[in-house]
Design a protein around this nucleic acid. Structure first.
Lengths: 193, 193
DNA sequence: TACATCACTTAATCTAGGTTATTTGTAAGC
DNA sequence: GCTTACAAATAACCTAGATTAAGTGATGTA
């Protein structure tokens, strides 16, 4: 399959020597994962992170009452993993599965560490990605503290404009933090304010 | 004042050559900031980040109804800044002020960039810090989605065990996402479940 | 002494969003 | 053509937490 999406993503953030790019690409392992299949389950210790080429993955946790809460959607061009499990090698509290048939590039933790040593510029690359993620999560947290369900829904539409079309409503509900029933009610009574 | 807290923090994450440490320290500017004084206000473009030596700062946003929502407390040993404003040089949506008389080490964006170029290991240092932050915010977001106010309060006590003692209740309320009135009621009716 | 200010409490009332349950639509599998 | 399964809609009722408003006590300060 084509690595162009990955290369674009890489070059948007950082400039590597051609042989470094080649070295990096050689460590990426292509994988396919069918709709509803798991990449990792709760309790697994993550062995690497995934860059999505096509399809869509999600990471979520299941609370004490069995309700799913979605932490992240990963459409093409996004990374997904439980960094806490990956970094500290502890059992994950998240599940990661595919919501469509998907293909991805998998980068293992061991390759990752070797690459950090041989291509220092990768430290910067991932630092930049982490900065962006952090900004996103901080904004989302403040939104959850200060906005109504309807406003959070509207923000979601802006953040994932393509996704809103093809995503079952209940997934959106599990992301913005309401029940599917409430979301349905909300969307069908369009009176504002 | 003593830089030992900063050096401990640095060495816990990364090992620099002595001359690199000296170079880094020489870029840190010591500042003092009185209780209730602002480091940055909403609309400011952040020019650097602060490492807290003593006292305590907080970052928060004020929503459309004038209610404060606290994103972060920064007791000694923590960094604080609006990364979105700092990274993208856009007006901040956050306020940062001191909740006690505080002293801090200020690292400007321009020094920061020069340091990244001359001490590549600093990329790793900040990458590691960002990873930790991200883990914390992800956990907090999921807690906000899945836990009750009482459980979030208990988590807060664990996360900032020293702080809970000396912090006005209303600040805690603004962090866990309830009104001060509700927090007071909750703490005074100790029936569980 | 008086009077502001601030942290906190109490209590009555209100509402956004949850819960539970039933129903309908629709697509997939056989 | 029938069945299973899941997404969505609807509705009646319920509750955690918000809102508003008043009141207490401790500290500060003129």
């Amino acid at each position: 399959m084509s690595y162009t999406l990955f290369l674009e993503h890489l070059r948007k953030n950082v400039r590597l020597a051609p042989e470094e790019e080649t070295q990096l690409l050689s460590k990426l392992q292509e994988r396919h994962i069918a709709k509803k299949e798991f990449l990792y389950k709760e309790g697994d210790i993550h062995t690497g992170q995934a860059f999505v080429l096509s399809g869509c993955l999600r990471s979520y946790s299941v609370d004490a009452s069995g309700i799913e809460h979605i932490l992240q959607f990963a459409p093409p061009g996004w990374w997904i993993a439980d960094i806490n499990s990956l970094k500290n090698q502890i059992p994950s509290s998240l599940q990661i599965d595919a919501i469509e048939n998907s293909s991805l590039l998998f980068l293992s933790r061991t390759h990752m560490e070797a690459l950090y040593a041989s291509i220092p510029m990768l430290e910067r690359f991932f630092r930049l990605l982490l900065e962006n993620s952090l900004i996103t999560y901080q904004k989302r947290l403040l939104d959850n503290l200060s906005l109504s369900a309807r406003e959070r829904y509207e923000n979601f539409c802006k953040l994932y404009p393509g996704l809103i079309m093809e995503l079952p409503q209940k997934q959106v509900a599990a992301y913005i933090g309401v029940t599917p029933e409430f979301l349905s009610k909300m969307l069908n009574q369009p009176r504002n304010k």
